[in-house]
């Protein structure tokens, strides 16, 4: 199914480049291009330096950090780690974030695909109007209802549980939107009819035909959803009270009060929260960019 992956931008940009005949540059243009590249590289440095220094400083002692800038790693990684662990169980936060992000991502994928499937292939009355509602949900930030949501959670005795963080993922508008477009393009209705004749139930068709065929699209959205949930700050901040239950971002924000005197440990804690996302990006950048781009398709 690899060929069904939405082509990421550069592939097509490259094709275009290949078509153009090479031409000789005039001296003025050479200088222009050198400046262009310098500018691009400078921006890349600005984008990457904070992360680089974060990783370097995570390996240096507070004394070394105080003394001045360094671009080469120090030797205090272990010490920093021990200091960090003394007052904060960062792996517990890591685990908590996984406990929230994994089920959220799975729910968003499953119900997002189910909803998208219905909008894409079933001609029920109100299909178009309801799909506009889905698009509308993409425009509403959680901040606007957070007080009501909290009060409701209090009433239902769901505050300080992960349910309030996980369950809303069932209604992830962007996933529905993206997967509907994906299914419109990649899911032949005849396959569904073939399965219907072959003897599949409606839900069986979704499980056995629709889900496997839409997997590349679901993967794209799931990576984005996972990162989004992993990064979510406000809702867990409001909903969780026990330090044992804190997700990584909440825990990291507490670094401020915790390690005022130990900069190395602070950098290390931040690095531990950021590096997994960077790795995910290196591995899945094409999926991620395809997913981000798709959001702008309509509106």
């Amino acid at each position: 199914m690899q060929e069904h992956v939405l082509p990421a931008v550069p592939a097509r940009a490259k094709e275009r480049k290949a078509v153009k005949p090479a031409r000789r540059l005039k001296p003025g243009q050479v200088v222009g291009r050198i400046f262009l590249y310098l500018f691009l590289i400078l921006l890349a440095v600005i984008c990457f330096t904070p992360f680089y220094l974060m990783i370097i400083n995570a390996t240096r002692s507070t004394v070394e950090i105080n003394r001045g800038l360094s671009l080469i790693p120090g030797k205090s990684l272990i010490d920093n780690y021990i200091t960090m662990q003394q007052s904060m169980n960062i792996w517990r936060g890591f685990l908590n974030s996984l406990i929230v992000a994994v089920p959220s991502t799975l729910l968003a994928a499953y119900f997002g695909a189910l909803t998208a499937y219905a909008f894409s292939k079933f001609n029920f009355r109100g299909n178009r109007a309801l799909f506009w509602v889905v698009l509308g949900t993409m425009m509403i930030p959680v901040q606007l209802g957070i007080i009501g949501y909290f009060q409701m959670a209090v009433t239902l005795r769901l505050v300080n549980t992960y349910w309030v963080l996980i369950l809303p993922s069932i209604a992830t508008g962007s996933t529905v939107f993206f997967l509907k477009m994906y299914m419109d393009a990649n899911l032949d209705s005849a396959l569904l009819e073939a399965a219907r004749v072959d003897g599949s139930s409606e839900l069986g068709i979704f499980h056995r035909i629709v889900l496997p065929i839409s997997l590349p699209g679901i993967a794209t959205m799931s990576i984005l959803n996972f990162i989004f949930t992993w990064n979510n700050y406000l809702t867990p901040l409001v909903m969780l009270f026990d330090k044992d239950k804190f997700t990584l971002p909440i825990l990291i924000a507490l670094v401020k009060g915790t390690y005022k005197q130990n900069l190395g440990a602070s950098y290390l804690a931040v690095a531990i929260s950021i590096v997994p996302i960077m790795i995910a990006f290196v591995l899945f950048s094409n999926y991620i960019i395809a997913g981000v781009t798709a959001g702008a398709l309509k509106e």
């Binding site: 032949d188 396959l191 009819e193 073939a194 004749v197 139930s201 496997p212 065929i213």
Partner: peptide, 20 residues
């Protein structure tokens, strides 16, 4: 009667083979 219970089989124009 739903399609699956009609004891029929169908061959589609574009074959409709399950790609996965």
């Amino acid at each position: 009667v739903p399609p699956k219970d009609r004891d029929i089989a169908m061959v589609f124009q574009n074959y409709a083979l399950y790609p996965h």
